[in-house]
């Protein structure tokens, strides 16, 4: 799955936790869940659980620490699901 497709999959996951849907229109890898999308931290955990069940992966604590941007989520899914490591 390419990153664009992944971002659109993530968009579906993130949608219920975003207060202003307009914020979702232009999301990119650098979009910050908290600063740009105003997602509260309790819902970041929901997003992680949703990502885990959607992609059938386990997000370890070390990866959770970095899950602040769309790009970090994309990187994580690529690594866990598709074994793609971007250096």
């Amino acid at each position: 799955m390419n990153n664009e497709k992944l971002i659109s999959e993530l968009k579906t996951i993130i949608k219920p936790y975003v207060q202003d849907q307009k914020d979702l229109e232009n999301i990119t890898e650098s979009t910050d869940f908290v600063k740009d999308l105003k997602i509260n931290s309790a819902n970041l955990i929901d997003i992680i659980l949703d990502v885990e069940s959607k992609f059938n992966i386990v997000v370890d604590d070390e990866s959770i620490e970095k899950m602040l941007t769309v790009g970090a989520a994309v990187e994580l899914i690529n690594r866990k699901v598709y074994n793609i490591d971007r250096q």
Binding site: N40, A42, D46
Partner: peptide, 10 residues
């Protein structure tokens, strides 16, 4: 309303 902490794994 926003968060269901009782969901599995939360």
């Amino acid at each position: 309303k926003e968060c269901n902490w009782q969901r599995h794994g939360y």
